[in-house]
Amino acid sequence: MALHHPPAEGAWARIDAREAGFDPAGLERIAAYHRAHESEWPRSMYHSNGEYVGTAYIDEKPPYNTVIGPVKERGPPAGMLLKGGRIVKEWGDIDRPDMTFSVAKSVLGVLAGLAVARGLIRSIDDRVADYALDDGFAGAHNAQITWRHLLQQTSEWEGALWGKPDSVDRNRQAGPGANNAAKGDDRALSAPGKHWEYNDVRVNRLSLSLMQVFRQPLPEVFDAAIMAPIGARDWIWHGYFNSTVEIDGRAMESVSGGSHWGGGFQIPTTALARFGLLIAGEGCWQGRELVPQSWISQMLTPCPVYPVYGFMWWLNTDGALYPSAPHDSVFALGAGNNVIWIDRANDLVMVARWVHKAHIDGLIAVVRDAMR
């Protein structure tokens, strides 16, 4: 089936359930399952005791749980299912911009590819210190860190950024069997490239380093290169109240790689679906290469240290991430939970907003069961 790219204006093409290979009754069960397994997070994003859910869910302690970026109330469950780029099913308010948490990390992975394509980063195995406009990579340990290390979350970068030390996320885990009982406990650092750790301070360091390479705010780069060409609108990407720096005489806000402390993407389901469709099409949109196919391939290659992770994208290597999904599936994932699922084997893209974390695989299974 030829890949359809929706126009920037006008109706998004739809496809009949049977033509798309789905049982119509099975399709109805997808939205019903999602609604029955909504995220446990409060709609306000704050618990009754005043704790922000973005830090409370990982039991972060004061003073590092302080919110330093914008927070928006979340909406109810919403989603879209595409076959070959055409809408098979949608549910909820798909036009509502909502926070997306670590889906922003996957955007950073794409922006790194643009920097490579433009020659702003000569090689992802170059030391980031050679590109830095500050002293964040000074010292024997940090000087060894390459762009590849930052992109794979194996950098072991040591320091503080925007008032948050990297130690706040030491011992933090994500993915299959994640256990965060030791999150924030000190540990000896490994050599860069030898240890995988889900560390939001280090991801924010990647974001700042990319802005220094582009010498332009990342939302401007992303909009001009990706979002405007694919017709994705009504989104905004926040940094923090204290993350503005000056480059070439211009004040620029360094955006966050998630919403751990507030900030991050606020974006509609429709825009996420367009972004997912771009990745499903290996970086091409309406015959135009927006992201090099070679970069998409690198970005979705398993990290040797942690094979369910690529360059800021989640991989279903050997079915370890979500057993119900094909093994070549790839995901952009954000807490709460926000999901872009790209099923390359079956030409599907699904976006699901605010699904209970324990039921993401169940939702995938319902989609699979609906396929004839």
Rank of each mutant, 00 (worst) to 15 (best):
V308F: 03
D361K: 01
Y240E: 06
L133P: 00
S243I: 07
R172M: 15
R205Y: 05
P229A: 07
E197R: 03
D166P: 10
G113W: 07
I94C: 14
P176L: 09
T55D: 00
D130P: 08
W147D: 01
A112G: 03
A365Y: 05
A8Y: 06
K105S: 14
V305R: 03
M252H: 04
I58T: 13
D23E: 14
A271E: 08
H34C: 12
F22Y: 14
S254L: 02
I267K: 02
E156V: 02
S243C: 08
G79V: 07
R74Q: 11
V71A: 08
H238E: 11
N180L: 09
S256G: 12
G287V: 10
F101Q: 13
A17T: 09
Y198W: 12
K83R: 15
L208M: 08
K164T: 14
I340Q: 06
S207R: 01
G263N: 10
I342E: 03
L82N: 04
Q298I: 00
A178S: 12
A104H: 10
L161C: 08
V355E: 13
R29G: 02
L363A: 15
D16Q: 12
N337C: 15
G139I: 10
D59E: 13
D166M: 06
D343I: 03
F265N: 08
P302L: 08
A232L: 12
S106C: 04
I145Q: 01
V116P: 00
M371S: 06
L151D: 00
L27K: 01
A365Q: 13
W41C: 01
A17Q: 05
V201M: 07
H149N: 00
G85L: 09
T66N: 06
V255A: 05
D369W: 04
R288M: 02
R202T: 10
I342F: 00
A225C: 13
R202V: 05
G159H: 05
H47A: 11
K183N: 14
V71T: 12
L206D: 01
K357T: 13
P304N: 13
F311V: 03
W147Y: 10
S123Y: 09
L82A: 08
F331S: 05
I30H: 08
A129H: 08
